[in-house]
Design a protein around this nucleic acid. Structure first.
Lengths: 305, 305
DNA sequence: GGAGAACGGTCAGCTGAGCTGAACAATCGG
DNA sequence: CCGATTGTTCAGCTCAGCTGACCGTTCTCC
């Protein structure tokens, strides 16, 4: 019978590339990883690793083995989830990767609710942008990721991830109500010369915003680049820039600015992702449910404001 | 991450019923099994075993867990099979459970062929009747079973078994050519008073034979009960009994007796069974192929004789 | 109804699987 | 060409997990 622990090391090696990275990730010494993998080679009688440069590469049979390891580990996680589900109380620790907008707008309310409903559940949050979040999910660094998708920018679907819709979040143009930019017309095409504040250019929201401006016939004059939506909102409010911002922001924030709908009422899709094996885990279900609930409350709060 | 070794113990407990049996089967002390299972309980936080009488019973969550354990272990076996398939040479040890007719007629030829083609493969044979054979297969005591199925006596299909047809083997009436029974008519219905030799009454061949006699309108007068087909054939040849015997017997044996076809030309189905995970293992494939080949040779030899 | 057998659970004690850390060779980048 | 990085080997240590002895409970068979 193949040893699952060794298969796990091989799997991690496939994901992370080097023995050293695997050792760091799993808090082992590189020596331990090397020893376990050579034992795996000897007990199977199949060459699994070949040195290339100062690193190693998986052989073809090793990659086949990684596929089996994935399946085995997924099934073990499902088993664990089933066991946890048979308990009356939701316990343990879940780690969540979120990006800033959701972290700001939904996570605090969700945490409050979880603390009340499942006091034995410990939740840990990391701020990660969607690109890194999926790698962290599959590497078992986190158990749930919050992701976003912008119109016209489809993601590559990761295998082994159970994805669930969370919300569709309206995207609108934010214009100052005071200062020199107060009289700007409420029309995207007319903002060619305006100073823009945007996320870093490689990020999803910035790529969507730039594409949208180009479709309106101009290249945006990005004066300020920041990933912080609070700062973006503040810069618009104080009359220094215009921006394209998601509605979810206004559930926590009520700045004095103009919000203008865009043609076609574009939305970003928010979703949650869990590893397929843990999708049934009560802690994951509780978290997703708390997030949906927080969204509901935020929405009703928003319509009242 | 759940420990697969412990899951395996739970799985074996589910199959074998008592901790002591598991310990015997896996060459552990009962103490070791008890300790590992309590550890599994503590690390999952779920009650898995409850004492009933002087034994234990699995709880509902434990039975769910066994299902997962089955899936995990099957996948690990498939992984091992894939690895073995990537080797150029077929090596290792396979254990086969066969019942007597096939053991006599096919296995020797198959072994010869295997020894020539795959010298590094070690084959171990146990004689087991089909009923026990499947339990042994699932308990990992053997890797391949040879089974038979008689018309009108369907088996319960075991889950987790990969079954493959091997042959359809004709069943005919065997009558003496000499002695006091030499003049018996070649017709089943006329053998009501004849002395019969049959397998033990609970066995498949005997159940079929009795059913066949009853369908012909009489209860067979079974004078001799033996599981040994060689002895059965010998008793017919020496004029002491009549019998219903499979054609495969005559590939090795050429006794002086009369063989009479039955209405409808009934056949028994011979098949091989492997655990689903090991069906792709080169050793299992080699064995099945050698058996088919041996059957082919036996058949041509039979038609020549 | 009592003796004996069978089953699990617990505890003390031992052994080996698997870890760390040091030393080393190979490779890459600036 | 030197320092940083990566993987490998080896000696040594630690603890997970085994055995064996002992005990309580339950069933079976005179």
């Amino acid at each position: 019978m193949l040893d699952v622990h060794r298969l796990r090391l091989l799997r991690e090696l496939h994901r992370r590339g080097t023995l050293a990275a695997v050792a760091r990730a799993l808090s082992y010494s590189p020596s331990a990883v090397s020893q376990q993998l050579s034992l795996l080679e000897h007990e199977t009688g199949v060459r699994l690793l070949e040195r290339v440069g100062r690193g190693v590469r998986l052989t073809a049979p090793a990659r086949v083995l990684v596929g089996h390891a994935d399946a085995v580990i997924e099934r073990l996680e499902r088993a664990e989830a089933d066991l946890a589900a048979s308990l009356s109380e939701v316990t343990g620790t879940v780690r969540v990767a979120s990006f800033q907008t959701v972290l700001l707008a939904l996570v605090p309310a969700a945490l409050t609710r979880l603390a009340a409903e499942h006091p034995a559940l410990r939740v840990e949050i990391t701020q990660l942008e969607p690109e890194e979040a999926f790698a962290a999910l599959l590497a078992h660094d986190v158990d749930l990721v919050l992701g976003e998708e912008y119109p016209g920018l489809p993601r590559v679907l990761e295998d082994g991830v159970d994805e669930e819709d969370l919300a569709h979040d309206g995207l609108r143009l934010a214009l100052p109500r005071h200062g020199p930019l107060a009289r700007l017309p409420e029309d995207l095409a007319a903002l060619a010369g305006a100073p823009w504040v945007m996320d870093p250019p490689a990020s999803l929201p910035a790529r969507w915003a730039v594409a949208r401006c180009r479709a309106a016939g101009f290249e945006p004059d990005v004066r300020i680049e920041t990933p912080d939506p609070l700062l973006q909102s503040h810069l618009v409010e104080t009359g220094h820039a215009v921006a394209l911002l998601p509605d979810l922001l206004w559930t926590q924030l009520h700045p004095d600015l103009r919000l203008v709908a865009l043609p076609g009422d574009p939305v970003r899709r928010l979703y949650t992702g869990a590893r397929r094996g843990t999708a049934g885990h009560p802690a994951v279900r509780a978290l997703r449910s708390a997030l949906r609930d927080a969204l509901e409350r935020a929405r009703t709060g928003l319509s009242r404001a």
